[in-house]
Amino acid sequence: MTDTTKQPKIQVRDVTISYAGKAVLRNLSLDIHPNERLAIIGPANSGKTSLLRCLNRLNDLQYGFSVTGQILLDGRDIYAPNVDVAALRRRVGMVYAVPVPLPWSMYENIVFGLRVTGIRDKATLDERVETSLKSAVLWDEIKDRLHEPAHNLSGGQQQRLCLARVLALHPDVLILDEPCSGLDPISTGKIEDALAELAARHTIILVTNNTKQASRASDRIAFFLMGELVETGPTTQIFTKPNDPRTDDYITGRFG
């Protein structure tokens, strides 16, 4: 599945992330290949979220934030001065730990990003809503009540709606920050199913605190610890014979 012969989708080169001068992620280098599902695991505060929020430059909004090194998407530096940040964020779609439906109908939530890019045509919008909801494994549950408020959905459904909302924009890369942290096993399963399908068309980076989920839903794993990348490797290898004893400690739950 992981195709290492092509150019990497994302190249993270010697990246250091700091808030107010305090480095929280140091000298990280990591390649992420097209159509792979990379899971990032690691204990709290190891800098996983910080990295994700750099990939779509959401951290630009944070006061005191700074990043050094380079992050390349398809070989181009996303922090270069002439980058269209809004377009970048459409290409690198993010799903947050807590689902945040905007206070509109489900339909409006999904077409919002499209409307902003200037797509007005009803048929196109309808089609995108349907395909993205299907990809997010939500279509069958809500197809008859698309115009109800999105707040009426359950937490698990809301999270899949948020996934569909991102998918509607046809992103290249999906970054998901603990998308299942507040969900029941059934909803979690549905999201994992969706991700498995989506890997055919997207590059997926999944941050998770759940090592079982990482083992189920990824091709490769990166283990972060206290702001450093300890090791990366194919999922099966990390779970059977990791190179670093700290990785072993973490996934077997002996960490601490």
């Binding site: 909004l61 905007l102 902003v116 909302r165 924009l169």
Partner: peptide, 23 residues
């Protein structure tokens, strides 16, 4: 208005002005 709405809007590729006027 929750801060998360702003993050969601930025995440979906809106400019600041679009985020303000539309969300």
């Amino acid at each position: 208005v929750p801060y998360s709405y702003r993050e969601v809007s930025y995440g979906l590729g809106t400019t600041r002005w679009q985020m303000i006027t539309k969300v």
